[in-house]
Simulated assay, not measured.
Amino acid sequence: MNPIRILVADDHPVVRAGLAGLLNSQPDFEVVGEAANGAEALALVEKLRPQVVLMDLRMPQMDGVTAIRQIRSHHPKTHVLVLTTYDSDSEIVRAVEAGATGYLLKDVPREELFRAVRLCARGEAVLSPPVAARLLGRMRGPAEENLSTRELEVLTLVAKGYSNKEVARALKISEATVKTHLLHTFGKLGVDDRTAAVTAALERGILRLEG
């Protein structure tokens, strides 16, 4: 089985080196390149075609959000996992809307980082618990009122075992749109992955599955 090809984008050389060493300690990971800014990241994605880009948000020349938007537009098979110290609501929402597959904070435990990289490589959305909590705090009123009709449709299909690709095909929307709906749903439910979202929605009566 081929390792997951990863590009690390961060403007601090020590952080890049540390992340590369940490990720390369896993037998199923291979760090194929490092970028010091968003423009460099975009050029290296074009050249190296990684499956996952680990992306900081605030970098010189081209910021992370702009780079995410460009990467997702030109290289839809490359998924971007944000890894940053910034947890403001606006930063999170901007990154998600630009097409980030996941959003983690830099104090994340290493095992959670490894798990998130593996999920992102499969195109599955993931939020670290503090980020999910921030998004949840942003929502007003009970979660039931805040899940849109489309978010419920997506979550219902996920509960039935559909992959993101199958959900996209069934609802005639793009995979990127499916991921965005899932990330918003995670934030509203205060969870960090698909399984937890389905479990929480069923427990709260938001989601009801026939049979």
Rank of each mutant, 00 (worst) to 15 (best):
M1R: 01
N2L: 07
P3T: 02
R5Q: 01
V8P: 04
V8F: 02
A9T: 11
A9G: 06
A17R: 10
G21V: 03
L22G: 12
L23A: 09
L23P: 08
P27I: 13
E30L: 09
G33A: 11
A36W: 00
N37F: 00
A43N: 00
V45P: 05
K47G: 06
L57H: 08
V65G: 14
A67H: 04
S73Q: 15
H74L: 03
P76C: 08
K77V: 03
D89Q: 14
S90D: 07
V93Q: 00
Y103W: 06
Y103L: 00
L104M: 13
K106V: 12
P109V: 05
R110A: 13
F114P: 08
R122D: 09
G123T: 06
V126F: 13
P129L: 12
P130V: 04
P130C: 01
P130L: 00
A132S: 12
R138F: 01
E144K: 14
T149L: 04
R150N: 07
E151F: 00
L155N: 06
A159K: 05
G161R: 03
G161C: 03
N164A: 11
E166D: 14
A168I: 11
A168K: 02
L171C: 13
E175Y: 00
K179N: 13
T180H: 12
T180N: 03
L182H: 10
H184P: 00
T185R: 07
K188M: 02
A201V: 01
E203Q: 02
R208P: 02
R208F: 00
